[in-house]
């Protein structure tokens, strides 16, 4: 069923986890009062958030965060579900379910980023 070996998938899992750590750190930093110079609640106002999304560099950061966390998260869920039970039907079913859920979430999140950025 899988094109990749489990050892390769685990490498992707670790790399996506470490990379996500950096992009999430930036995502949080740009909301901190010490960086923005405004209270946290004010940084969440509609105009400020739209301005963030319309910044191409930030939109790229959001998209990469979406992809990295979706890969890491749904693969993590796959690993947990494979620990519960082992047979071909279950293993293939879990893999297909997590892949479809991951692609659907990435597509939905990308739609938000594109529309808010003004590209969609």
């Amino acid at each position: 069923m899988l094109m990749l070996k489990e050892s390769q998938i685990m490498k992707i899992h670790y790399i996506s986890g470490v990379a996500a750590l950096f992009v999430v750190a930036v995502h949080i930093l740009i909301r901190l009062p010490v960086v923005t110079g405004m209270p946290f609640s004010m940084s969440l106002e509609y105009e400020n958030v739209v301005a963030n999304y319309q910044n191409i560099a930030y939109a790229v950061l959001l998209e990469s965060m979406l992809v990295l966390i979706a890969i890491h998260g749904f693969n993590g869920l796959r690993i947990i579900l494979l620990e519960f039970r082992q047979n071909i039907v279950w293993e293939n079913g879990v893999t297909v379910f997590t892949l479809v859920a991951m692609i659907a979430l990435i597509a939905y999140g990308t739609r938000t980023i594109l529309i808010a950025n003004g590209l969609g």
Partner: peptide
């Protein structure tokens, strides 16, 4: 594992809640 599952659920919810941005200011507020 517990924190991983919790964070995945939060992440899905976060992607859905922030999508209200495309429906305008009232939906966001």
């Amino acid at each position: 594992r517990l924190t991983g599952v919790f964070l995945l659920i939060y992440f899905v919810g976060h992607v859905i809640e922030t999508s209200s941005l495309v429906d305008g200011k009232d939906a966001w507020n």
